[in-house]
Design a binder for these strands. Structure first.
Length: 500
RNA sequence: GGCCGAGUACCCAAGCGGUCUACGGGAGCGGAUUGCAAAUCCGUAAUUCGCGGGUUCGAAUCCCGCCUCGGCCUCCA
């Protein structure tokens, strides 16, 4: 069965057909901006891209996956598409400087807050750490192939070349204010991806157009490609003066540099559809002269938290590391952020996180049981091997992960049979997409302090139980519960873990 | 105002015209186990799919209208 994917460009689900049937699938993902830690909404988008990549691999494709790490600081008041306000990287620097002063600087961070490159590097390394914990394959590959996660600050040359090409082809112009703009009327297909065609843009307006900048542009929707600004915190020399690139430019330039003029897949969050991806299409197609930039556009819908929009003021804003620090396993977070279909809004809840953890625990137990009977001599096909085809079919159906998860659950509830080795291999194959079995452990090391207390209480309880003083043993257990510890009595003794 | 999505049990969620008295998971409830719990195992839940019409022999699934929620309309994953 062919892989079928929904394509934002055609608003329909279609068979995936790679450009190069013998080579690798060319896949570009819009990655994080590194002037702050990535939050769980960001990670839903990145993890869905990873899920797609792993599904492609399950289907037998080789994948060249590129994800940028945006280290140029976009403007805080980027509301006129022409730059303005403060650079977000310098804002981040100020935040770090304040944290430094108040002694709240994260561990291991001794950086110069006035150096935007250092600020970017600081958050980029934290992002890579989070991403590797969550099993983002491209972040793992980055260790040996750093070019797979390019940084715009290192690709300014390519961006300048792209702007030059667009000017030469008549798709861009230098306006009277010295800024280079892309001319949207020069690209007939502008609006095809988002539905925001030029006539509709004019109707809608949206109140975010700054009249001062409009005067110099040929069309209100024309967007900036290069802004000369000799005072800017990050700036590079260019034929149009020292300044900085427009914020849509980096993806077009880096995708072309690393994957070619035409790519198979491009992913991002739904908010990227317009203007970011619409502008990328315009830039890339005009520069290459090809009718398509990416054949398929893959967009993940937004994540809500406890039924509400995630926001810092509502107190429902989480970064991945916030949750890891609470003892949430990367596996549970990975599953929770991906198990809702990518084209529906998903609702992140603490209860959901526990549900995910529960499923993973059962899968791990099933895996351990298979390992335990690897030498029992059983042969043949069991539930896992039978499940594999349906698991794959579910994912091939526009990444129907909920169904693929239910396939595993059904297989696990069946009586085990067949060759344990083969069964385990089938489970591993399914897990190669889900990526949870190998990361089902909390990242926070329990403090020695807590461990000591817990061990003491467990010993107390053990003695009380031996003496049949159940009131005392229950008291010990209540104290453990108060410490946030859950205990489990097993034939091998009592184990404990931090309750999430 | 324009353009997109979504509404299924207490919660998450599959379903794409008949095989749906609707897959899974969690919570709950009953039982086994346990000193009591936790964990585990067994059993158990919507005759109904936001509301109202329509098409059809047949609709959660298609069409129309309405309501609610979310996204985009130049910050945002």
């Amino acid at each position: 069965m062919p892989l079928r994917l929904y394509n934002t460009l055609t608003k329909s689900t279609q068979d995936f057909v790679p450009i190069d049937p013998t080579g690798a699938v060319r896949f570009y993902s819009c990655g994080p901006t590194v002037y702050d830690d990535a939050h769980i909404g960001n990670f839903r988008s990145f993890l869905n891209a990873d899920l797609l990549r792993r599904t492609l691999e399950l289907c037998g494709y080789q994948v060249r996956h590129v994800m940028n790490i945006t280290d140029v600081g976009h403007m805080t008041e980027d509301d006129n598409a022409d730059g303005g306000g403060e650079d977000k990287m310098s804002l981040a620097g100020r935040r770090i400087a304040e944290a430094k002063k108040s002694g709240k600087l994260p561990a291991g961070a001794d950086i110069d807050p006035s150096n935007p490159y250092a600020v970017a590097e600081f958050y980029a390394s934290r992002f890579l750490e989070d991403a590797r914990h969550l099993g983002l394959k491209v972040a793992e590959e980055e260790r040996t192939q750093p070019q797979l996660m390019p940084r715009p600050t290192r690709c300014v040359k390519e961006m300048i070349a792209l702007v030059s090409a667009l000017i030469a082809r008549g798709n861009a112009y230098v306006a009277s204010d010295g800024v280079v703009y892309f001319s949207v009327t020069s690209f007939a297909a502008y609006g095809q991806l988002s539905g925001n065609t030029l006539d509709k843009l004019r109707e809608g307006e949206g109140g975010r157009i700054d009249a001062a900048h409009q005067a110099v542009k040929r069309h209100p929707a024309d967007f900036m490609l290069w802004k000369p600004d000799p005072t800017h915190i990050m700036r590079w020399p260019s034929p149009w003066g020292e300044g900085y690139p427009g914020w849509h430019l980096e993806c077009s330039a880096m995708a072309e540099m690393l994957l070619g003029d035409e790519i198979d897949l491009h992913s991002g969050g739904e908010d990227n559809i317009f203007p970011h991806h619409e502008c990328e299409v315009a830039q890339s197609c005009c520069a290459s002269g090809l009718p398509h930039f990416s054949r398929v556009w893959f967009h993940t819908r937004h994540l809500q938290v406890e039924g509400e929009k995630m926001s810092k003021s509502k107190g429902n804003f989480f970064t991945a590391r916030d949750l890891f620090a609470k003892g949430v396993t990367p596996a549970a977070l990975r599953l929770e952020l991906t198990r809702t279909h990518y084209r529906t809004n998903s609702n992140f809840t603490m209860q959901g996180l526990r549900d995910s953890q529960r499923m993973i625990d059962r899968w791990c137990a099933a895996d351990a049981a298979l390992l335990a009977r690897e030498n029992d001599g059983a042969v043949g096909v069991g539930p896992m091997q039978r499940a594999l085809a349906e698991f794959k079919a579910a994912l091939e159906d526009d990444l129907n992960i909920a169904r693929s998860v239910s396939v595993i659950n059904i297989a696990i509830s069946e009586p085990p049979s067949g060759s344990a080795h083969e069964e385990r291999a089938a489970l591993a194959r399914m897990n190669s997409v889900l990526g949870v079995l190998e990361r089902n452990a909390p990242l926070v090391a329990e403090s020695d302090d807590l461990a000591t207390k817990v061990e003491a209480l467990l010993e107390q309880r053990k003695q009380a139980r031996a003496a049949k003083d159940f009131a005392a043993s229950d008291r010990a257990r209540d104290e453990l519960t108060a410490l946030g510890v859950r205990i489990k009595d097993t034939p091998q003794g009592t184990t404990w873990e931090r309750a999430v």
